[in-house]
Simulated scan of single mutants.
Amino acid sequence: MDYLELEERLDRIERLLVANKEVLTFEEACEYTGISRSYLYKLTAAREIPHSKPNGKMLFFEKAKLNIWLLQNRRKSKTEIEKEALEYTFKNRQV
């Protein structure tokens, strides 16, 4: 097994371990969300993303709250919009 293959396997193991955690460190939150360090700092400073600072210095993130935050402002698909339009049209014809 060469060095590159070993490094890839270790990366996979680390990702699996993070996937099982409920509370993430700042670095883990960056990795989990795909958000850059500087942007995540900006979001926490502006209090736009849920986080905790138990000792006044280190930042921690609940994975469940991060998921909710990441999935806010959902956009409907074209199919969903068309379905709603049809339902609305048929509902108004029956009246």
Rank of each mutant, 00 (worst) to 15 (best):
E28D: 08
A29Q: 02
L43H: 06
Y3Q: 12
N73M: 02
R47S: 11
V23Y: 01
L4C: 03
L70S: 01
A45K: 15
L59T: 02
E8W: 04
L59F: 15
D2L: 03
R15F: 03
E28G: 03
L16Y: 09
T89L: 14
I81P: 02
K63Y: 07
L43V: 02
R93M: 11
L59V: 03
N55D: 15
S52H: 08
M1R: 10
M1S: 14
N67P: 04
Y32A: 01
Y41V: 01
L66Y: 10
I49H: 05
Q94P: 00
L16A: 10
I35L: 05
F90E: 14
E5C: 04
Y3S: 10
I35G: 04
S38L: 12
Y32T: 00
I68L: 13
E8H: 11
I13D: 08
Y39Q: 13
F60M: 07
L86H: 07
E8K: 15
E28V: 06
R15W: 07
E62R: 13
F90S: 07
L66P: 04
E5R: 11
K65N: 12
P50T: 05
A45L: 08
T79A: 15
E22Q: 12
Y39G: 00
K65C: 03
R15Y: 01
E5V: 06
E80Q: 15
E8P: 00
L4R: 14
F90R: 10
L66I: 11
R37M: 02
T44L: 02
A46Q: 15
E7I: 10
S36K: 14
A85Y: 09
R74P: 01
W69A: 03
L43A: 00
F61V: 02
P54W: 03
V23L: 14
E5N: 11
P54E: 09
M58E: 13
E7T: 06
E48N: 13
L17M: 13
K42R: 15
G34Y: 09
L59E: 03
T25Q: 07
L70F: 04
A45E: 13
L66C: 04
M58P: 00
Y88D: 05
G56M: 01
K78W: 04
Y88A: 14
R9M: 10
R47P: 00
I35V: 15
K65H: 09
K91S: 11
Y3K: 14
E8A: 14
R47A: 11
C30P: 02
R15H: 04
G56L: 02
A19Q: 13
E22K: 13
I13A: 13
A64R: 12
G34T: 08
Y88W: 08
